[in-house]
Amino acid sequence: MKKNRIFNTITLLSASVIVFIVLAALLFTGIIDEYNGQLLTLAGIYIIVSLSLNLITGFTGQLSLGQAGFMSIGAYSSAIAMMNFHLPLVVSIIIGGLVTAVFGLLIGFPTLRLRGDYLAITTLGFGEIIRVIMVNLETYTGGAAGLKGIPSFSDTGDFLKDSIIKFSWVYVFVIITIVIVNNLINSSPGRAIVSIREDEIAANSMGINVSYYKIFSFTMSAFLAGIGGALYAVYFGYLNPVMFWFLTSVNFVVIVVLGGMGSITGTILAGVGFTYIQEWLRFFKDFRLVIFGLALIIVMLFWPRGLMGTNEFSIVKFVRKYIRKEHEGGSSKPSKIKGVK
């Protein structure tokens, strides 16, 4: 078992480093230009927030329409930590996550009594309340005019260097988020969370503390969304409550559903796709959003359970299969990949 774990960690670590080196090299040589680099970084932030939503919606089975609200708390609190208290970047980002987690804990309580559509409406209301508060807390948030001058990840004036540094920051946080969510889901608390999604009553009768795990999942999700929000704030350097209105929350729900509820790889795929396709379609001019909507409909028609369903693509499994094949001379036909381990 221990040998397995070391092997898995090494494979995953090297895979993420290889992906990073390839992307950074592409950025550096200009094969991925700055515009696409921006989209890639933005997609990273979208992935973080969508993964956090997937934790609530996909794995715990509680529909939330307030993820943008969590995101904005993280964004504003980290911006304020940096601008008013002059805290270092990393500390501010973590503060953004922690402050949001406190709110996640608070919003977690109503979820004990509410389910499905009712919970969705509650979280929707929560998101709107947060937005209105941000508009009115003018001294700290800049109000409706927005908050300007948030320090950036890197502001050297060398745009290529800046864009690579910004991308690296977000990439590191994406990897951390994936690791957190993946390890959580495959741990004992994670199994408990999934069992709540499958059948709350059954889970309860099996001795699982449903209330505890629901609140736990909300707090965890809020924390990650807060981190995503903090990165968003630092990345753009400008915040406006309009950026976090309810359609932003809907965007994250779209990403999660598109990728497959309860699939980490699905969310990653959909997060990248969602960000890119909207921008690629710019050449359609006025019909851009029509085509985009059409694309969503087509995906949902062909893949009603999302791109990945509840399946995962596992790098570890892939590598293992490859190694086994080498040993056995490629006799076994690769079966359908399912589950992480």
């Binding site: 230009d33 700055e34 515009y35 921006q38 989209l39 933005l42 927005g146 745009f159 753009f236 400008y238 406006n240 309009v242 950026m243 921008e279 710019r282 001019k285 851009r288």
Partner: peptide, 18 residues
């Protein structure tokens, strides 16, 4: 198109600029 959304404005700007 910026959709009157600051985030989309930044994307549009990056495209025009780079």
């Amino acid at each position: 198109d910026d959709e009157a959304n600051p985030e989309k404005t930044v994307n549009a700007f990056k495209k025009l600029a780079t």
